[in-house]
Amino acid sequence: MSAGALPVLAAVGESGRSVLSPSGVEIVFLLVAVVVLGAAILCVTSRHLVHAALYLVVALGGLAVEYLLLTAEFIAWVQVLIYLGSVVVLLLFGLMLTRAPIGPSPDADSRNKPVALVVALAAAATLVTLVVDAFRTTWIDLSTPHGRSDALGESLFRTWVLPFEALSVLLLAALVGAIVISRARRDDSEEGRR
């Protein structure tokens, strides 16, 4: 194929890289991307509330695989531990405590679904056009891993130690706040017991 056929196809890098001859990592990335997107779409369209949470597990787990493919191993495991381990469990508890029905719930979507679809499609079209146009000649060099735990930990506890500590205080404040908000007061529990 001639290099000038399409703007995107013309972007053959200096080492002969091209969109049309993807590497193995790229193929795996695209396959996992299809899984992630499919699970995300099912998560926001499913009428079973608990199924939506489980599709969220699939989407976020696939995203952890994408992080691994981008050589960001530490982020991948943190994603598995925090998102899949705690956030989704919290969401499932939230669904249970608000007495979500087990079967399909017809009122899971609001009436402005068409408007939401239009907005999302317009945003997707705009952003995809922008991103593809901006980065069509850019390749990530994955030959040297750039997310090893030792390097990341060193930079986290040297350069970023102050924001890190501030974040730990914020997390503590948020959890204390969550306990205070959700603690049953006497009048609340009366209402809740009815």
């Binding site: 890289r17 969109v19 993807p22 590497s23 990592v25 790229e26 990335f29 695209l30 991307a33 992630v36 997107l37 995300a40 779409i41 998560c43 926001v44 509330l49 989407a59 995203l63 994408e66 493919l69 981008l70 608000t98 979500a100 719930s105 009122d107 899971a108 979507d109 609001s110 402005n112 679904k113 408007v115 939401a116 679809l117 907005v119 999302a120 499609l121 945003a123 997707a124 952003l127 995809v128 991103v131 593809v132 980065f135 069509r136 850019t138 390749w139 990530i140 994955l142």
Partner: peptide, 27 residues
Amino acid sequence: MHLVHPATLAVLLFCVGLYGVLARRNT
């Protein structure tokens, strides 16, 4: 790896989330 792949996946995932925020009724 082509940078377009992760960037496009991120954009599409963001727009799926945007649809969910606008269309869902359950908090």
